[in-house]
Design a protein around this nucleic acid. Structure first.
Length: 516
RNA sequence: GGUCCCUUCGUCUAGUGGUUAGGACGCAAGGUUUUCAUCCUUGAAACAGGAGUUCGAUUCUCCUAGGGACUGCCA
């Protein structure tokens, strides 16, 4: 048996790539792959390259590439080289690199590592279904290739004839026999494969003059001088093919190192996280909103998540620094990240913890910044308030919310009088001597000269003392009048912000409305 | 079916050949508070199972079970 070891890289510049297909919105798992690539690159002073893998002409989706760009921009994962940014190794869109792949596909045929195959998709389909009927699996491999229509089984003349006649063909890799392929995966350690269990993958198709993923990937990673391939675990089974391709192309010396990331799984049940889980559980699985015929798939951005929070929560899905720290900004992630600390096992996505991350990052943000965002929300509601007031309000209620868009529900009473009163609270708090007291309190508050929290409190306190009522009792009723319910920040602060007139008006209105 | 990967509280995870197996989310109780939320304290909660190695295994090895990925002229 021959043994092929993955070569150790000589010290070279770290260059990693994120290589999505523009077949739809970027999935959150893809986003994490991008993030880990980015963190690894920046940690080692390297480059983060974005390559668009659009070799499947039938699955191309309009707008998907722009979606990818926008997602990475939103998250702050700055691309060093790519379609938009340019670079010395372009083009960065595989559909624009056709001639390059053709050359290497031809080379593989010439050197005997690959061959032409003329079997039609229909014929192969039939072989597969027939085999299935007998509880077997059809594979285009060392056992079957000589019985099929390809340049290994057909005469040279016939092959030539078929090609010249314009018959469609593909080039398949001729997987060698009895070879143990070993790789030292950066997260999984040593993994071995026997080539006898592998099939002859299609590398290139004449129909659209494009390579398949495997060839394009190897050629581009080599030509773009990629040092580390960090991708999802679903690629682990194709590692031996890839290593054999590097060998066949004589590029083993500079072959990148591999790291296969664990998958992100459903919150409950079996399988990996899908769009359906998001719909069911009410959380996004995409970074940005994505419009489809049957509605929009919600994105983290539009759902109110901060990019910092998304990076943070994604980073901790399958990685941790080994300390008890859980909250990080992107620079901390970069300095702390290490590929060796990436876990092997898949991680279930926890929507509750995702919210918690956002809340934590919300608390870390300056109030001014939150107030600005809240101000936009208020504008949309037709409320134009002084930014100083918005800042004050934001500061008072922000610890009660997970998202900026929840600020309104916790603070609407600062901007408009409550239109209804929570019945449960009315029943519990608006009873006994309290309504009468509230009616008497209004004129008393008129006498407060300087409308500030301390003086308002002093006024109310003395009145309470005079009547011999419980402070809590009165405050709850007062809260009901100002807020309409049993929640909210310090009452005196609320009263101060909404002003004397408004405070008194709300007390009077409560006395009238609730009483009747 | 075949190949490969994985397995610590419900979830994300730390950790070691000898630990009261640690933290976080969530949950529960108590405290603080004029309410709610925050905050604080406390609690319940895990080494998948079985062999083997060993004085001793959660930790090392093997097996089983369970989970996952791949098995396309998709990536």
């Amino acid at each position: 048996m021959q043994k092929i070891d993955q070569q150790n890289m000589t010290a070279q510049k770290v260059r990693v790539r994120f290589a999505p297909s523009p077949t739809g919105p970027l999935h959150i798992g893809g986003v994490r792959t991008a993030l880990f690539n980015y963190l690894f690159a920046k940690k080692h002073g390297g480059d983060f390259i974005l390559r668009i893998e659009d070799t499947d002409s039938t699955r191309f989706v309009e707008g998907a590439e722009e979606y990818i760009n926008e997602s990475l921009e939103w998250l702050g994962l700055t691309v060093d080289e790519g379609v938009k940014q340019g670079g010395e190794f372009g083009p960065y869109r595989q559909s624009e690199r056709r001639e390059i792949y053709k050359k290497y596909a031809d080379q593989l045929v010439e050197t005997g590592w690959a061959y032409y195959a003329f079997d039609t998709p229909e014929e192969l389909d039939k072989l597969r279904t027939d085999a299935e009927a007998e509880k077997k699996t059809f594979a285009y491999d060392m056992h079957s290739r000589l019985q099929l229509k390809n340049s290994l089984a057909l005469s040279d003349d016939e092959v030539k004839q078929r090609i010249e006649a314009g018959e469609p063909w593909v080039i398949r890799f001729k997987m060698p026999e009895d070879t143990i392929v070993e790789t030292k995966d950066l997260v999984r350690g040593e993994v071995k494969f026997n080539t006898n269990t592998l099939d002859d993958k299609v590398l290139y198709k004449s129909a659209d003059k494009l390579p398949t993923y495997h060839l394009a990937n190897i050629v581009d990673d080599h030509l773009m001088e990629i040092s580390h391939v960090i991708r999802g675990e679903e690629w682990l089974p194709s590692v031996p093919l890839h290593i054999m391709l590097y060998r066949a192309l004589n590029w083993e010396e500079t072959m990148p190192q591999f790291a296969h990331l664990p998958l992100i799984l459903k919150p409950t049940g079996k399988g990996k996280l899908s769009k359906r889980d998001g719909d069911k559980g009410g959380f996004p699985v995409f970074p940005l909103d994505w419009e489809m015929e049957d509605g929009i798939a919600p994105g983290y951005r539009e759902s109110g998540y901060f990019p910092e929070a998304v990076n943070n929560l994604l980073a901790l899905l399958g990685w941790n620094p080994g300390t008890e720290q859980e909250l990080f900004d992107i620079d901390e992630l970069i300095s702390l990240f290490s590929i060796e600390r990436v876990n092997k096992s898949g991680a279930r996505f926890d929507p509750e913890k995702a919210k918690w991350f956002n809340q934590q990052h919300l608390m870390r943000k300056p109030v001014e910044e939150l107030a600005l965002m809240f101000s936009d929300d208020l504008n949309e509601r037709g409320i134009a308030e002084d930014i100083a007031v918005i800042e004050k309000v934001t500061g008072m209620v922000r610890e009660r919310v997970n998202f900026v868009h929840e600020l309104w529900d916790q603070s609407f009473f600062f901007f408009e009088a409550p239109v209804e009163y929570d019945e449960k609270v009315v029943k519990k708090r608006w009873k006994g001597d309290v309504p009468a007291f509230m009616a008497e309190l209004a004129p008393e508050l008129e006498k407060v000269n300087e409308w500030v929290a301390d003086d308002i409190k002093a006024c109310i306190s003395s009145k309470i003392e005079e009547k011999g009522l419980g402070f809590g009792l009165v405050m709850n009723a007062f809260r009901l009048a100002l807020v309409g319910g049993g929640f909210g920040p310090d009452l005196m602060e609320i009263a101060e912000v909404i002003g004397k007139e408004e405070t008194i008006a709300r007390i009077k209105k409560a006395c009238e409305t609730i009483g009747s």
